[in-house]
Design a binder for these strands. Structure first.
Lengths: 353, 353
DNA sequence: GTTAAAAATGAAAGCGCTTACATTAATCTA
DNA sequence: TAGATTAATGTAAGCGCTTTCATTTTTAAC
């Protein structure tokens, strides 16, 4: 592999001059520039990025931490981050936190030790304090899907409260009164905010929040499934359930179908996030769009702007959700709750056998 | 940030000695080792990985090229690659090819220019020739989901022929005789192999392959949807369709459901890949398991073994598929084909309106 | 107690770049 | 046209490590 020295020798100029034309910095006459370009072409010269990094104290790499690499949620985000960054000739180093405190912390340290110029972090478990400390450190950090006091300018997040309002508002507008809610794990701010939106929507319609209609899930299908089972088990009537994300909605609906309940005829559902579902799924889930790709791109933009000084790039912190109406919510008919109560009773009995 | 120099000064030893204890190479007395460890701890020393890379001519990074970062297929593979590699303290740089020739090539060059120690490549479009040249280059390359003549030892792939055999064999065993097939794009070897498996299974049952029952898809939902439409349009009878991957099966089933056909009552389906579907999908797709995670891990193993000289690691090239029986295939009843022909005729007419 | 062999350590030359600073060439001013 | 600017280029000192080779210290053998 040709080095910068080979180029400078062939072109008959100094190392510094070659460096200048490679990086497009400083003044170089057209004639000299041409000579250097010719030499580079002849030698098929590619700068050694490692040496560049060491000398310039910049690795041109951005670390991205997500909790899962599989699953439908992070893919679109990763895609946007990768393409935005690569277009700027930066590379992305990925690490997964696997929703585990130790692994998540480990991943951050790993990325840091790799000399990333910046980190884009979707922290599930890490505490606010840790993140505040992290952001105070030398390596710039953008937080995605989260907003933390004192470092708001580093956060890219969704207006989850509004999303919760939208979701529950939608079923309320369809006449439902008794609405169950399966939340995300409440140690997470987004789960709490979505729940708060739910409560506010209820309140706005003069309905009291009922603990009996509430279940704390885990943002995973299993949680939705179990939550639905628990809710049904309680033998209380309800005609709709709003889930704090689509995966829990999927689990919850699965249970209903297993029990012979029809969706949305017997029971309406709303999800959250708008993850891609297979085309043949039925009913198609009404949900709240979480523009996670846009947020990914925005995080990349922040890095481009603040770390790589591309001031042409715009930035915004907060994204607004939007309701995506599909097929899983039906106008409320008063008979529904009765059906559900009966079903629940039956289910409950059969479970005990 | 403390440098190796600071450590050597504090410990009262030379740079070389510190380097030896950091890398666990060469001979160092216990006493000295302890002094160095103490100094490192006191200074919270972390080796600068960039400098290490430059000096050792090894970046400890592995480039991974996939065609899509989103979508259900590559996630599990990425997960395994990342965790295997990170456990060995290597980092993975990702790049997406977006199923586009130019972008795929671009991504390879990008990764190469990044000084990766090795590449794990899932090439969709790149030609065999290009890949052969690539493998002949300085940077070791493992090909995943592909086998190319002359570089078999670099390929990790599935026995697609066997998979095709399994899929079609399964519907044949359920008495189906007229079986439609929606293939992947035939410029891809895996698509051709799966199709070949289909043909062999047919032959083994004394059934001739019928072009009328064949549609070349694109491995995407849309292709399955369109393929199904085309097949129905032909007005020929068939009672089952095997799809070269799950996503096309999803699209094809979606069309059937839209047309009022019942699956599997009116028509049976088999997919391929066993991608994760939402729990509430119905019917659950019978498919062929493609152990893509295992293949990802194996590719990582190859790199660990051949590039990072970890000889404790085993390796195998070819993976065997397995049938995953779920709910989308039913025993053939002779009435089915008639139903389908009628439906097709109706559909065809209604389409013309 | 020698001496040879083995073990432990250190000195120093890079790895391929960037960049502050120095130097020289070109252009401008009066 | 001398002197002052400004533009263009070069010199050389790192960046923080690894690694070869030389040197010193320890251990073993007789």
């Amino acid at each position: 592999m040709a080095t910068i020295y080979d180029v400078s020798f062939l072109a008959g100029v100094s190392l510094a001059t070659v460096s200048r034309v490679v990086n497009n910095t400083g003044k170089v006459s057209d004639k000299t520039r041409q000579k250097v370009h010719d030499a580079m072409a002849k030698l098929d010269y590619r700068p050694n990025t490692i040496a560049q990094s060491l000398a310039s104290n910049r690795s041109n790499s951005v670390g991205v931490l997500v909790s899962q690499l599989d699953g439908p949620f992070y893919g679109p985000m990763m895609r946007e981050i990768e393409s935005a960054l690569r277009a700027a000739n930066k590379h992305v180093i990925i690490a997964a936190g696997h929703s585990d405190a130790a692994q998540e912390k480990d991943a951050v340290e790993f990325l840091l030790s790799r000399g990333c110029d910046a980190l884009i972090v979707d922290a599930e478990i890490l505490s606010n304090e840790y993140l505040q400390t992290l952001c105070a450190g030398k390596t710039p950090v953008v937080l995605i899907n989260r907003h933390v006091d004192g470092i708001e300018d580093r956060c890219v997040h969704l207006n989850n409260l509004e999303g919760g309002l939208l979701a529950t508002g939608h079923v309320l507008e369809h006449g439902h009164k008794r609405i169950a809610y399966i939340s995300g794990p409440l140690f997470k701010l987004d789960a709490r905010e979505r729940l708060e939106g739910h409560k506010q929507a209820l309140k706005a319609h003069g309905i009291a929040f009922d603990e009996q209609l509430f279940f704390e899930g885990d943002f995973r299908e299993e949680g939705g499934y179990e939550g639905m089972a628990a809710l049904l088990e309680r033998g209380i009537g309800f005609s709709a359930v709003v889930c704090a994300n689509d995966q829990m909605a999927s689990g919850a609906i699965a249970l209903c179908l297993e029990k012979g309940l029809q969706v949305p005829k017997d029971i309406s559902f709303v999800g959250f996030d708008n993850i891609p579902f297979p085309r043949y799924i039925s009913p198609k889930l009404t949900t709240v769009c979480n523009p996670i790709q846009d947020m990914g791109r925005m995080a990349a933009n922040w890095v481009l702007r603040h770390v790589y000084d591309d001031s042409s790039i715009d930035f915004c912190h907060r994204f607004e959700p939007q309701l995506v109406v599909r097929e899983s919510v039906l106008q409320h008919r008063s008979s529904t709750e009765a059906v559900l109560s009966v079903t629940a009773a039956v289910t409950s009995t059969s479970n005990k056998m």
